[in-house]
Design a protein around this nucleic acid. Structure first.
Ligand code: MN
Ligand code: MN
Ligand code: ZN
Ligand code: ZN
Lengths: 144, 144
DNA sequence: TGACACATAGGAATTACTACTATATAGTAA
DNA sequence: TTACTATATAGTAGTAATTCCTATGTGTCA
């Protein structure tokens, strides 16, 4: 993602923050910037290490709390998976994930039919649906 | 699930163990029995509490390790989700899950079209696919 | 029945995440 | 510009979940 694109995302992020009453702290923007510019679906720990380069005194809790906040306001989300370290995604484009069970890499792909899967009516009626996910697990090209 | 059905599952489980070279310990069988007879997708902790009634001295680690072993040999699996306590499923029937984000209940449903979703060729070629999951998240009937 | 590789019990250690609190600062209004 | 206040952060402690370690026990097989 180009510098210009990242800047544009940050601009839109600042608007989201103002709308939701969140303060625009330099830490928050820095965390968002690192999350949105990568497609590696980093953990809080990984982002903590990156943000430390600009904010040597930032605490892990601030990074983690901020990421949960981003998830709350819909600026990012927690990646689905089976019981590993929590991973975050700053891309709100419709897409799906492949996760390697060995190296834990999470790789984006987009298959349009997966965006519009229809649930049986019985489920839709009984529950309030927030998220429908198609998720693929296996061994990646580098590991096999 | 009836007593007879559970017994049949356990019989088949003993065959699986012999095939994979796993020893048939009473603890292992008891853990499997509790997992297979419920549809509540228990955590290791919950199963530990149940198995303790028959094996008061069993350790948590034995329960957890056994569950991971069951996942290894394909007698059970780890339920997909976004970053909560690890949950297990003893049913190897094709089915899907709805998870309530509030009470964390995991509810089985079965929608046949979801069993046969087709991945784009690019993904199937590049990676070794082990699992394709359709996963639904929301608020359950009891919570909303 | 004996040998031994695998499994378990008990507890310690590690990892992941969350809570607490004093200090700092973004937003706002004088 | 300045002062105020609610929110955010830093530093640290605490909790929860999971994994590791090791001595002892036991299922399996010869
Ligand atoms: Mn992604
Ligand atoms: Mn299930
Ligand atoms: Zn891999
Ligand atoms: Zn619920």
């Amino acid at each position: 993602m180009s510098r210009v694109e990242v800047d544009e995302k940050i601009r839109r992020f600042t608007v989201m923050c103002r709308k939701t009453g969140l303060r625009l702290t330099p830490q928050r923007i820095e965390i968002y910037k690192h999350l949105v510019k990568t497609d590696e679906h980093p953990s809080a720990e990984i982002l903590y290490e990156k943000v430390k380069k600009t904010f040597p005194n930032i605490s892990f809790d601030t990074v983690n709390r901020t990421l949960l906040t981003l998830n709350e306001i819909g600026a990012a989300f927690i990646v689905e998976g089976s019981g590993d370290v929590r991973r975050f995604d700053g891309s709100m484009e419709k897409h799906q994930h492949f996760k390697c069970v060995k190296c834990k890499r999470i790789i984006d792909f987009h298959h349009k039919p997966f965006d519009i899967i229809k649930l049986p009516a019985s489920i839709g009626k009984k529950f309030k649906i927030l998220k429908k996910v198609v998720y693929v697990e296996g061994i990646c090209d580098l590991c096999k």
